[in-house]
């Protein structure tokens, strides 16, 4: 089977049983199930350990909800999920993917306000009455995935790695 055209353009090798290695959809909640389904198919193919696969599910939801809510305050834009690895020849047991949006610049790994970071850590020890509700999604990102962020042109590109 010949590779899809976008595979050629990006140089990303197609995986054996899933012809699709990227998916671009409108950045709203209705897109969540399809993006999730694809990411979990990749996770399954990559042979991630059983306890790691749900982390992919979780971190993807957290980051997508963040994009849905904050990336496009005025006009609706897109979000793209893309597979980085495993490609052909990669060792099994790990998965790398990217999430790209073309919205407001936002680095989920480096809050601009240092007080926010400190607040988040303190928040974990706060008791029930004091505990604020926000910030947990970003904390889960940092705890459960190896993540890196880049602003490339007008795009936010978040790379997420799971597994060994």
């Amino acid at each position: 089977m010949p590779p899809a055209q976008d595979n050629k353009a990006t140089g990303t090798p197609a995986t054996a049983s899933s012809g699709q290695n990227r998916l671009r959809l409108p950045a709203h909640q209705e897109s969540l199930p399809r993006l999730r389904e694809l990411a979990l198919a990749w996770a399954h193919q990559a042979g991630l350990p059983n306890d790691v696969e749900p982390r992919v599910d979780l971190v993807l939801e957290e980051m997508l909800m963040n994009i849905f809510h904050y990336a496009y305050p005025s006009e609706l834009g897109d979000v793209e999920l893309a597979l980085l690895s495993p490609g052909q020849g990669d060792s099994p047991g790990r998965l790398s993917l990217t999430l790209t949006d073309w919205g407001v610049p936002f680095d989920p790994l480096a809050p601009e306000d240092p007080g926010l970071e400190a607040g988040l850590e303190a928040n974990l020890d706060a008791d029930l009455d004091d505990r604020a509700l926000g910030g947990m999604g970003l904390f889960l990102l940092r705890t459960l995935a190896k993540a890196s962020y880049a602003r490339l042109g007008d795009a936010n590109v978040l790379t997420l790695a799971f597994g060994a």
Binding site: P54, R55, L58, L124, D127, M136, F139, L140, T143, L144
Partner: peptide, 14 residues
């Protein structure tokens, strides 16, 4: 994953 999220979020202590 439910137990893991409770632990890392601090909910298991809260």
């Amino acid at each position: 994953i439910v137990a893991e999220v409770f632990t890392v979020s601090g909910f298991a202590k809260l």
